[in-house]
Write a protein that binds this DNA or RNA. Sequence first.
DNA 1: CACCTTACCTACTCGCGCGTAAGGTTACGC
DNA 2: GCGTAACCTTACGCGCGAGTAGGTAAGGTG
Lengths: 210, 210
Amino acid sequence: MARVGKRLPRSVREQQMLEAAVRVFAERGFHAATMDEVAERAGVSKPMVYAYLGTKDELFVACLRREAGRLLEAVAGVVDPQLSADEQLWRGLRGFFRYVGANRDGWAVLFRQARTREPFAGELARMRRGMVAVIAEKLADALRARGRDVPAEELQTMALALVGAGEALADRLADTPDEDPERTATRLMNAIWLGAERQLDGEVWKPQTG
Amino acid sequence: MARVGKRLPRSVREQQMLEAAVRVFAERGFHAATMDEVAERAGVSKPMVYAYLGTKDELFVACLRREAGRLLEAVAGVVDPQLSADEQLWRGLRGFFRYVGANRDGWAVLFRQARTREPFAGELARMRRGMVAVIAEKLADALRARGRDVPAEELQTMALALVGAGEALADRLADTPDEDPERTATRLMNAIWLGAERQLDGEVWKPQTG
DNA sequence: CACCTTACCTACTCGCGCGTAAGGTTACGC
DNA sequence: GCGTAACCTTACGCGCGAGTAGGTAAGGTG
């Protein structure tokens, strides 16, 4: 393609390769993606990719880490521990959906692909556990502020449900270009917070039938 | 293995093959699963699998459909339209988590694998859309009963969030053998219903900051 | 200008696993 | 007791794509 004998420094090429790899993985899925296509889109030959980023698995992990870092930054960078619990949650959600909206390929690679495909699932699961732990901790804070206490396990479950809901909405966001991140965030906030508040205040739903 | 010249009728062999296939797909993932292993576990040689169930893709789809049918039955079979909205939701959730708990391999194949892997993702997405539509309709009913009205799009989002949360909890359930389906269902019900009720009553959460 | 390092290429090898051709054997109807 | 159809096997073809060996040229440094 752009085979105009352009010689570029390693740092630049690496970024181009990662860029290309994210797009190819997102479009084709991990298995159907070929190293040849990654190389071609980066405007380089296959052995260069191997020289700089290693095997296909290593390349995927490199993409994963890069996107995870960006996502983490987009979320953690905007939550100020001074704010109220609901405000923190809101900002985190908004940051999250903004990232996904601005970065749909990244999301597709980072989470959709890695969710299943061993050996990446483990890595992703660890990240998710981190997320869940952070959220559960926030919930515990909000709880303490109300002078109440709830088993950690229960909070874990709530947090996991929130993360799951977030991922489902993120998937839709990534697929539908006309979906607005702000609106998505607001809706999830409504779906979650109104209920969480009641739970934090000690209300419980119980089945009527055995 | 059991190469004791056992000759069996087609209907029986097909079930054995599907059984084996679900387990292999669940353990290894679609790509890493080999037709040889499926054949071996079914106690049969590879060409038999091809003769009865077709190519690898077709075999996977067969598993998918079987599990999807069972799941649908487990959920739809227990919701009685006569009951109140929350009771219907509760029964549906309980049925869902009971299925997953009793059928962890099935869940792993059915949803985790198919979520990403084209060309199955399309099929799965259709099922999910069906689920979301049904739930959104229930919510609309509950809404009408309270004399209120909300844009369908909003309800879709709530329903999708619920489904996402359900899937996340189902994933955990499938991975941790000591997790109890009933408890999982109760917790999700609490996380969701308390909030949904407030939303259905017209309450809204709004951000304080721009 | 000799040199060395870094960027980059063409052109392979090779294993793996899907899918199949061709043939053997058991049960069952008549 | 023999035909035939259903059941089941061994043994292979073959494409595809990951990963590599070995070589070329460009630009900086003395």
